[in-house]
């Protein structure tokens, strides 16, 4: 099997240049590539375009890269939990493109699957439709949306093997599989890295063909945004 293992996050992100277009997996703070975000922060590259459903919080996730002014543009569906984000947006330091969540997911999927455009009803009749081709199918109006691709896709999985096969856990899967397929170079960080044969092929979510670099991450914080509990009776 092809060995794609790199030593750590620093090595995995070593050649990401200024002004790169990145996809970063995760929904809220769940399933985000914590190790790579920290390595990008340390590396100090600037002018990044980040495609990610959310923008982290002030002191965690992509919020860290916003604080250090490394992000030029965010492409997201919801960015509501971040005060520094709001400040930079209002002052014009940060560009933002907001995309309906399902359209964002499908644009990433299309990028990885070689589909340049598709039609979706989401956003028809709204400001999202401005400048987009509208077409009618069976009496209903749809917008044409284009694929999204990234110079580097950075994803987080639960388990992976040395040839890049990935398994996600719970709702931490979210955008990770589509983004893994839509990167020219895809970096996967995993909680547990195993040898080929240790993962059941029946259970693989992302086949290794999409992944160029993989490493076992460390010190996962896996922060929770809204801890909500039921009192034990």
């Amino acid at each position: 099997m092809i060995n794609k293992v790199v030593e750590n996050a620093e090595v995995a992100v070593r050649d990401i240049p200024d002004n790169a277009v990145l996809m970063l997996g995760g929904f809220g703070l769940s399933g985000i590539p914590e190790n790579c975000i920290n390595a990008i922060l340390k590396k100090g590259i600037k002018g990044l375009t980040c495609i990610s459903n959310n923008a982290g919080v002030d002191d965690f996730g992509i919020g860290l890269l916003l604080k250090s002014r490394q992000v030029k543009k965010m492409i997201s569906s919801y960015v509501g939990e971040n005060a520094e984000f709001e400040r930079q947006l209002l002052s014009g330091e940060l560009e933002v493109e907001l995309i309906p969540q399902g359209t964002l997911a499908e644009r990433c999927r299309a990028g990885g699957a070689g589909i340049p455009a598709f039609f979706t009803p989401a956003g028809y009749g709204t400001e999202v439709a401005e400048g987009k081709e509208v077409r009618e199918f069976d009496g209903k109006k749809y917008l044409m949306e284009h694929w999204l691709k990234a110079d580097f896709s950075i994803v987080k999985a639960w388990k992976g093997d040395t040839s890049g096969n990935l398994i996600y856990r719970g709702t931490a899967r979210n955008f990770n599989p589509m983004m893994a397929a839509a990167g020219k170079i895809t970096i996967a960080e995993v909680e547990e890295l195993v040898s080929p044969g240790e993962l059941d092929p029946n259970h693989i979510h992302t086949p290794g063909i999409y992944v160029q670099r993989i490493f076992q991450g460390k010190n996962y914080e896996k922060r929770i945004e809204q801890k909500t509990i039921t009192k034990a009776s």
Binding site: F27, G28, L29, S30, G31, N53, E81, Q101, G102, T103, L104, A105, E106, C108, R109, T120, P121, A122, W158, R169, G170, T171, A172, R173, N174, F175, N176, P177, M178, H205, K222, R223, I224, E225, Q226, K227, T228, I229
Partner: peptide, 30 residues
């Protein structure tokens, strides 16, 4: 931390649940 709802609250799963990607999720919505 790996089990949250769309409001980012921690949740549990009922017996017989299924998990999928965001693209699959909006595929079933669309």
């Amino acid at each position: 931390a790996d089990l949250i709802n769309a409001g980012k609250q921690t949740i549990t799963m009922m017996p017989g649940s299924s998990l999928f990607s965001s693209a699959e999720s909006f595929g079933m919505i669309r």
